[in-house]
């Protein structure tokens, strides 16, 4: 047994997690990138991406998840997503209106279409994914502090 197996849940859970966590992340990215042509979008995609990290954390303990994405990076992504969304909205002023869809719309049902909406989805998913995972970490770490006392 390697040292990695000392923390977290049993071997079965860890093996299943190792197999599925990549798929979950990929599915989140799919939902996010096809948000403008099918049901889904930034919020749903961001939640699924955050869930993949939470899955990792539940199975392997908090160090494994925080090693992949430290909490400074989380708060950076959260602020960056919000600023990006606001910047996209402000760029609409180049066409004369706040939130104007100023990019070419493209053909319906193609991946590269719908102007600014895919960009907005990416910004929202950054904000939601980082925010949700940060909420989870904050609640879990608070509990650890309470138990140590």
């Amino acid at each position: 047994m390697s040292k990695e197996h000392d923390r977290g849940m049993s071997v079965i859970v860890k093996t299943v997690t190792r197999l599925t966590v990549g798929l979950i992340l990929l599915y989140g990215i799919y939902i996010l990138s096809h948000g403008h042509v099918s049901p889904g979008g930034g919020f749903a995609g961001g939640v699924i991406i955050a869930l993949s990290f939470i899955h990792l954390m539940l199975a392997y303990g908090k160090e494994a998840a925080l090693k992949r994405i430290p909490s400074q990076a989380l708060s950076f992504f959260e602020g960056f997503g919000a600023i990006m969304f606001l910047a996209i909205a402000l760029l609409g002023f180049t066409g004369g209106y706040f939130f104007l869809n100023f990019l070419p719309k493209g053909e319906p049902f193609k991946l590269f279409s719908a102007g600014i909406i895919p960009l907005c989805n990416i910004a929202i998913s950054l904000k939601v994914g980082a925010g949700l995972f940060a909420i989870f970490i904050a609640l879990v770490l608070l509990k650890f502090e309470g138990e140590n006392k």
């Binding site: 708060s75 602020g79 960056f80 919000a82 600023i83 606001l86 909205a89 402000l90 002023f93 706040f98």
Partner: peptide, 20 residues
């Protein structure tokens, strides 16, 4: 009329710049 959305934009961008 372009001044109207700025009330939300300025305060929101201030909030997120500070958090960054």
């Amino acid at each position: 009329a372009n001044v109207i959305p700025l009330f939300v934009v300025v305060s929101l961008s201030g909030a997120f710049l500070i958090s960054l």
